[in-house]
Design a binder for these strands. Structure first.
Lengths: 347, 347
DNA sequence: ATTAGCACTCCGCATGTGTGAGTGCTAAAT
DNA sequence: ATTTAGCACTCACACATGCGGAGTGCTAAT
């Protein structure tokens, strides 16, 4: 694409992102000094429309970017600004809270994300099954229920209550905890294979207890295995003029209340790159057709384990969103990696 | 108030609740056969308006109930229907899930509440400090952090990570857990008084360890002591015609995102009665001036510990809301009481 | 005390009109 | 061969105008 067309597409997109109004040739000529007259810009815009980058909401209105136009914009037009030092500091403060539990850290991180961008923010945290076991503990609750406590690798703590067919005495649960710890510490819960289980059976020396343990772990895993979705600032979409229509806003917010849908939407994004942008029709769900999602992956020591991002209208401040989301994700990764190392050392 | 005026007020309120349109004398004469002509009804309505029970959105429109009208309606006009057997069954199924954690039970209970009423639902669960300790466990995480796990009376399980100034070895944490369990089991965490602490110190036989334990418990308590607010179906307020205006909806939903505000709002309701109704201007917060809240308390063995309810427009189906909310709260209480008894027996 | 009748009010809706922003086209200028 | 000025045209939006209908309050008759 010729340089001038690029400049115009960029000007139109920037302006529309800012004002939410269709932008005309005069406006561009006035605000962005490209050194050419409105007429020339009109001609170029007609070309851009032909090429599918711009569209007109109605004849004789200004132009707005199409999804394709936004795609071109994010891929090769926008320049991503640095996050300001104050904001960097704010994000670091929020993320570096090692005494907090991981879920809380993520929760608060995306709350900040929503505040800084004024978009809805979301995050996915992996389930407990992914990391190595740090600690496993079984406590009796009443005759038929026990509490299973799992602490896994980067600092996930999860507990669940499991019904057991036969009562377990405190001494039995203690014994069970000890044996389970011996065998599972350092291994991923996903690795609970037959070999491991049979070995466990030998060491337990109690068939009945062994069966219970297996049943128990199975249940615990089934319940707690799924990824968690965090969401914050869903109301912020109501700030956007494109959602001034309640019906549309309702549809979107209802979709956001179903966490499973968010999850399947987010798991679609390619995680081979750090920051991913999904624009309008690229979204799988119809309710999101006027939305864009900017996500970044975070992980431990290079391995991706989760995802944070923001959701806004397709007319989103992509540059800003990318920079902030990326910075938050990077900090999360850094923190998790440090915590992980610290734990390794302390063993 | 004369019987006929009561009948008319009731008819107006019922009709307005159903249609959301100002209701006129003709409508009442047609739909509710009071055996009098529209003219008579008009006269009565004028009286009711004079008395402050009805108001006109504008001259020559029908009447709608004022807050005072609603108040009179809920206090002495409406008849609360029975919950249908199917719905009762549905609620019971949702609440009687003893293998689930309490928070989850409440969460799912109010999700159902929102579905059944089509209003936003909310609940308050007391913090961990209120109930007696069932179990307390301290686990080392890394050099400077330990995990404190608390299981308290009716089945609350909470954990938090606490930073400690000096490393605690696994054997020390085990010892500490054992001593703490001995002393605290069966007592409320709020009772952690000086006497108890000094006794603890003697038994621990280790000044440094004792100090850490105290610091640790303090921190754990400070973090986890607050009540939890659950909220579900916030988007449902967008179904109400009174919130067709996005600006108004936004204001309300923003208020709902601040859990602390909900909490302070809910703690205002008098809990000497089981079901409480707060109508329009009776709410403390300005954002809620067009809303009503119907809440019911739940508890263990007669002692109130929490609150569930629904939030809707002042034009709310009060009768229906009261019956469903009350039934959910009753079931929660029953379940909690049973769980509590079961635990007592198993000790 | 109740009701029929009637004039009056005011909202909601549809219709008509003007204005302004913006376009596309054509012809002139560079 | 571009670029630009000029101009006619389009269309959304805002604003006035004009009904129709639902509902009221008042008065007089029952």
């Amino acid at each position: 694409m010729q340089e001038r067309k690029r400049k115009i597409l960029r000007a139109v997109t920037d302006d529309y992102i800012q004002t939410a109004e269709p932008v005309g040739s005069r406006t561009i000529a006035r605000k962005y000094n490209l050194g050419v007259s409105p007429a020339t810009i009109r001609n170029e815009m007609a070309d851009l429309e032909e090429g599918g980058y711009l569209r007109q909401p109605h004849t004789s209105a200004g132009r707005i970017p199409s999804d394709k136009g936004y795609r071109y914009y994010v891929d090769s037009l926008m320049d991503v600004p640095e996050v300001s030092p104050e904001e960097k500091e704010q994000i670091r403060r929020e993320v570096y809270q090692p005494q907090r539990e991981l879920g809380d850290v993520v929760q608060r991180a995306i709350r900040l994300l929503a505040m800084l961008t004024n978009y809805t923010s979301l995050a996915v945290m992996p389930g407990v099954h992914q990391g190595a076991v740090r600690h496993i503990q079984i406590l009796p609750m009443d005759e038929t229920h026990v509490l299973v406590l799992l602490v896994t690798e980067p600092g996930f703590v999860q507990h669940c209550i499991v019904e057991v067919s036969n009562p377990l005495t405190p001494s039995k649960t203690e014994h069970l905890s000890a044996v389970l710890n011996d065998h599972l510490k350092g291994r991923a819960l996903g690795d609970l294979d037959r070999l491991l289980l049979s070995q466990l059976g030998e060491d337990l020396n109690d068939v009945r207890l062994f069966e219970q343990a297996v049943e128990l772990l199975h249940r615990a895993l089934r319940e707690q295995t799924d990824e968690t979705v965090y969401l914050d600032g869903a109301v912020r979409i109501l700030n956007q003029p494109e959602f001034r229509d309640v019906e549309r806003a309702k549809l979107l917010m209802e979709a956001l209340e179903e966490r499973s849908r968010i999850l399947s939407m987010l798991s679609e994004v390619a995680d081979d790159q750090e920051v991913a942008i999904t624009i309008g029709e690229e979204n799988v769900y119809a309710e999101m057709r006027d939305c864009s999602v900017v996500t970044a992956t975070y992980g431990i020591g290079g391995q991706t384990i989760g995802l944070v991002g923001v959701l806004g209208p397709t007319r989103m401040e992509y540059a800003r969103a990318v920079s902030v989301v990326e910075f938050v994700a990077d900090n999360l990764s850094e923190m998790l990696t440090k915590m992980s190392r610290r734990w390794s050392r302390s063993r």
